[in-house]
Design a protein around this nucleic acid. Structure first.
Lengths: 346, 346
DNA sequence: ATGAAAGCGCTAACAC
DNA sequence: GTGTTAGCGCTTTCAT
């Protein structure tokens, strides 16, 4: 059987209380005793029984992280951020995936609650409109990673999605794009917010947005093929755009390839910016500019917030949402030209 | 405070023992009582205290999964497999990442052991040569995901890496490639095994492998750029290969793009097969054939094996390694030609 | 078919 | 600075 506090106590002719105190860093122990204890603990490879501690203290020192999927390249980044935040505090993270299924999402949350995690980090499916019903029975702090539905009472940490559209538009405008197309993705709250930000920026700049330059994707279809075909359609129109922003990086890859295949020069004749910046392939070939959505930071902030709220008893602290800003990552596909280059093509 | 067995017992004028029995599916309870209990449990949203149960039974119903990194696209697949295997058994998975650092790998394992996971799934860094030292003090079953170092006493689940090289070579040979180059990746055990398999298959077919067609990568450098530059070098030689296999998919992407940029036709003049099949971009543009390494299945098998060995007391069961075979996923880059197409280009 | 007693390993609260 | 007592919520064992 595993070694217990009592064993060490017997061994050292002390009470287990003293051992316990040393291990938890209480100060009312003599330096000498402390050293002896620590030494023996090391030698015997003692590891406190976490169930016993948990039972006694009412904590499990576990954070739940419920994700909609693991295959979405954003998720590992969120996980990495959470792990980073948690590393120092003796907390562990239980991760589950709902595999993009609403029912499983429900069961997922239920599992975490049964597990008695000290706090739950919840990242909903992109097209989720409702919170999982079980959440109502949760008695632990819940931190939403992503936009919060109307009736949510906990904290949330999310991206300023409208800024994503705004900043991308601004980036293209600054590079003298005037005919900007937008592959807006499926009709989800997130995609809508991005689009709204885009329109706002365009309006502010006084640049019209043609209807045929706004292309929607079916749910689950914002991929390479979608981008490729959308670009082909744009190329067939009488006025061809000189800038494209997309909802997802894979779409932008498709746009890029379709444009190149049609003989367009990027970035001279067409500038392209994607969104997500979580794919290694943004760095392949003619590299792709992208909106970085700070997934890692999102996870980190969410975890830190959760850890903080575990301490607070009544959770009386105002549950204000936390917002992060995106960042333009410029690569080849929206590169600025030097004055010299510009002159050469005049 | 949370609701306890005792609360339900009081409520129903039963002893908590009866409630406990019902919840664990013991049969010596009358159907009527059982129904009453279940009903009340539902209504009150009772969730057993997992720490208490763990303390009493000596189990934590937790599996540890120690990964070398989360950003490697293979990892999410492994995680998905583990989750799938575990879903039915009431087990949860605690996931940690070592962020590709040997020291952290050590601490990672230590964390899991302190957490008293019932079993530990361990996936080492690719260039790890030794097992983490703490593992010696482990008293729980450890299942290695990936090749087992010499002195490892537990179970391991891994890919038949030599078959990866073999099958890829065979695939190219069947498509009448005779001048096959191999970007062999860095000098890790896994990369070496793949290469050995490749050589074996080539020797068996009686096709020579030119030294200048075997290109090595620096550790951590088996990416797009590496593949692109390697292909440029291959193109500069007096005899150009008609087939390329790579250690990683990103390299193969680079190879593909360099070849296309040089005006080669794929797959007519050059066939390319990558390895990993975990990147969405395998499906972009001229799609890339790849060796599928069954990561998901790997995780699933490892988890199932671990769960099984939790039951067995003495772990007396022979700890035989389990091996999986890879699979060729054919896409554009190694497509066979129809007879008609072949004739046309004669 | 139901229940009473004991105890898993730890820590909070309080002596000494 | 050190030790004693009590009990967290559950399950194992054994009576009834």
């Amino acid at each position: 059987m595993a070694i217990r506090l009592q064993d060490i106590a017997d061994d050292l002719k002390l009470s287990k209380m003293t051992i316990s105190k040393v291990l938890r860093g209480q100060t009312d122990v003599s330096a000498e005793t402390k050293a002896r204890v620590l030494k023996r603990v090391q030698e015997l490879n003692y590891r406190p029984n976490i169930s016993a501690r948990g039972l006694r203290t009412g904590q499990t020192f576990t954070l739940g992280l419920a994700l909609p999927s693991l295959l979405d390249p954003a998720m590992p980044q969120i996980v990495a951020g959470v792990n980073e935040a948690v590393r120092t505090d003796g907390y562990s993270v239980v991760i589950t995936s709902a595999d993009d299924d609403a029912e499983q999402e429900e069961r997922e949350v239920e599992l975490h609650l049964s597990r008695q995690v000290d706090a739950l980090l919840l990242c909903l499916r992109n097209d989720a409109t409702e919170l999982p019903a079980v959440l109502a029975t949760a008695s632990v702090p819940v931190v939403l990673v992503g936009p919060a539905p109307a009736r949510f009472s906990g904290t949330s940490v999310s991206m300023r999605e409208s800024e994503v559209g705004q900043m991308a538009a601004q980036h293209l405008l600054e590079r003298r794009c005037r005919r900007i197309a937008y592959l807006r993705g499926p009709r989800t709250p997130v995609a809508d917010m991005r689009f709204t930000g885009f329109l706002e920026q365009m309006r502010e700049a006084g640049i019209p947005v043609k209807q045929e330059w706004v292309i929607e994707a079916q749910p689950g279809d914002a991929g390479y093929r979608n981008g490729y075909e959308a670009m082909q359609r744009l190329l067939a129109a009488k006025t061809v755009p000189d800038g494209v922003m997309t909802y997802a990086d894979l779409q932008a890859m498709g746009v890029r390839d379709a444009a190149l295949a049609a003989g367009l020069e990027i970035p001279r004749q067409l500038r392209v910016i994607g969104c997500g910046n979580a794919l290694p392939m943004c760095e392949t070939g003619l590299t792709l500019s992208s909106m970085d959505l700070a997934y890692r930071e999102l996870g980190k902030r969410a975890a830190k917030t959760a850890l903080r709220s575990i301490g607070e008893k009544g959770s009386a602290a105002a549950a204000r949402p936390i917002f992060l800003s995106p960042r333009v990552v410029q690569r080849d596909s929206t590169k600025e030209w030097s004055a010299a280059e510009r002159k050469r093509t005049k």
